[in-house]
Amino acid sequence: MNQAGETIARLQGASKNYGDVLALDQVDLEVRRGEVQALLGPNGAGKTTAISLLLGLLRPDAGTAVLFGQSPQSLAARSRLGAMLQTTGVPDTLTVGELITLFRSYYAQPRTVADCVALAGVADLLRNRYGRLSGGQQRRVQFALAICGRPQILFLDEPTTGLDLDARETIWKTIRQLVAENCAVVLTTHYLEEAEALADHVSVLARGRIVAAGSVQQVRARVAQRRIRCVSRLSEQAIGAWPEVRSVVRDGEHIEIVTDLAETVVRQLLFEDCELRELEVRRAGLAEAFVEITREAA
């Protein structure tokens, strides 16, 4: 999308220890205006730690964290960011409307309450107490609090965990709109389709280090794997015995083969089964790329 925007958030050689555990190891990260940066990685990889450094909740033990050219802890930097943290502990006894009113008061030019609730899809919940909402509704309220100050950068730590599909679509749509208005987004997620759907730039973290970074396409290209799908009279066992094949699974009538050398395998398939049909070859999705990259790093 907008790759040329200026850098507004940066980690440079940032490291963070929790006691003896090295949570983040010399991580470099740049977020540009109008860009969605996705942080992927298994639990404990350091995604939340990286976000906490940029939010000023933690200070790096080594390296620097800079937001809008200043310390993330400065009030000026904070007034230009919005955040949705993983654990938020919003008071149960306040209503959605009260929470939004409170957070709006922190900003010079907040969105109207009507805009906030429309963008987060919680318009019908204004009078409800937070504690009586479902998990997905609570998540959307947290999203409303994150965007109410017209942030120029939005930090979303697992934003759509526990959301149903409709709610997720609402939030995705709003994120795309904000990005179109030049807002930057830093997103951690377990849902790889979320990164594929939204991100311009992906950084894969494993054990506190960035093991791969680039566009979705670049990260995916890091992995040579491709997926072959077809209907064949050959057995899984027979195909699985070929040296180029990483794995074979049967999916009803279809067989799915994962391989690094798709051309060789396809040639072999056609050679051994002249009745083979519905042949399909595609590059691995981010999910496969991600598993592969983090396994290499382990």
Binding site: L57, S79, T87, G89, P91
Partner: peptide, 16 residues
Amino acid sequence: IERERGWLALKRVAPM
């Protein structure tokens, strides 16, 4: 409670 459950952290991030 607010420290442990993250409410204080969210308020510290917001420009309260």
